[in-house]
Amino acid sequence: MQSSLTARLAAITTAVLVTVLGGVVLAAPAHAATTYKGVLPAGTTMVAGDQLTSDNGQFRLVMQGDGNLVEYGIGNVVLYASNTTDKPGATAVYGTNGVLTLRSGGKAFKQWGSGANRGLGLILESDGSIHSVDTAVRVLWGIESFQNTVRSGTNIMPGTVLRSDASKSRTFTMQADGNLVQYVNGRATWSTHTNRNPGAWAAVQADGNIVVYAPDKRVLWASSTSRAGAGSLIVQLDANVVFYGKSDTRAWSTQKVTGLLWPVASRSITGRYGDDRGAGHTPRYHQGTDAGVKTGTPVYASGAGSVTSTVANDKTFGNYVVVKYGLTTVLTAHLSAIEVSKGQLVSPGTEIAKSGNTGQSTGPHVHVETRVNGTLKDPLTILSFR
């Protein structure tokens, strides 16, 4: 957890309740909605419109009027949802046994926790994770939600922690002392050196500039990328924090960029991006680049990323794998074997598959497709040969 559970005990027992008119709901409640700041005390029922926020308000767990319990992050990005929109008017009950239950019509239809211990509070942490703790201030269970991407036009408030993934080993933290710091495996690898400015915050501005402001709005640090335009700041799995501007190009990063690699140890190209495959082909123009290698050749990850799809026996691609690296995804297809699973973290040396001749293939090869922010690109302009 990002803060000591022992230190949170006082916050739990003196949790602040703020009454607001309305809330983030699909159907307006008849009551004045309640906001629980930092901690939801044991024995509390959340009805439509009620919400639990992190201490600085960056993360919100909302009991919506449609029955869905949803966590929103910076910029109202959905980080977690119970997927129960078919239960309008449902309530969320955090019991004294430490169990969180969704109820409708007097019946429970979804729950978290076992009830083996006495609950004390449900904490929405500064990194977006949700933890239930018992009276001894020990974690009973948790939802390890996180946010790794922040869009332009939003702020990163003091205490907020962005993470590349659920492991918590790669973080980007706007510390309470005013320092914006990148941590890798608990070690600071980059910072703005703006400590001794408690209350400072970071703005990911609409013009593409990333700025750390003092409480009196003095500029303490800036990335000097105001010409990049609106884009995304991403805490990546390759231990880099990168800002991509309006053209999806890398405008700023905390670490030196080494680039992404070609998936096989071969420079043989048997089909190029954009080749006209002739009338009757769908799509007619080749969307990737083909690596001419024999069946069984090792296929590797292109960098540090996460597997987003593994598909077997597709009519067109046969067996294929999709891996995401920041804004870039790499698809490798016509494989004879898949050696990774969805959600798995990979590095440049990870063997993810074996090449093959599956699907609509006229011979052994690996079909390689690259997309940047969803847009097809020529793989040979994105990936470097090994």
Rank of each mutant, 00 (worst) to 15 (best):
S384N: 14
H31L: 11
E369N: 13
V322Y: 05
S306D: 12
N83C: 09
G67R: 01
Q344E: 15
Q205D: 11
N76S: 15
S145P: 04
V78M: 11
R118P: 11
L100C: 06
T254C: 09
T381G: 05
T13K: 13
V20G: 13
A7G: 13
H365V: 05
E351H: 11
V241A: 02
L52V: 10
W112S: 01
I143C: 04
V264L: 05
R267E: 14
Q58N: 10
L100N: 02
G288Q: 02
N373P: 01
K217A: 12
A214W: 07
K37N: 09
D314Q: 07
E71D: 07
I338L: 15
Q205F: 07
N195E: 14
D55F: 08
G106L: 03
E125M: 10
S232G: 09
V16G: 08
Q51P: 04
A200P: 08
N185D: 15
A304K: 12
K377G: 03
S302W: 04
S266A: 12
T173R: 09
G119W: 03
V235T: 11
S384Y: 10
S361I: 02
A188E: 12
T84F: 00
G343Q: 08
N373T: 01
V219W: 05
G245D: 01
D50Y: 00
G186P: 06
N185S: 15
G75A: 05
Y36T: 01
Q182T: 09
K110Q: 12
H31I: 12
I12D: 14
W221T: 09
T101A: 13
G57W: 01
G49L: 02
N240T: 06
W190E: 08
H367N: 04
W141S: 03
G245A: 03
S306Q: 15
A312R: 15
D216M: 07
G349W: 09
S129Q: 10
G349Y: 07
I210E: 04
P29S: 01
E339Q: 15
D216T: 12
G98V: 01
G374H: 05
V184W: 10
K324G: 08
T189C: 09
P198Y: 10
Q255L: 11
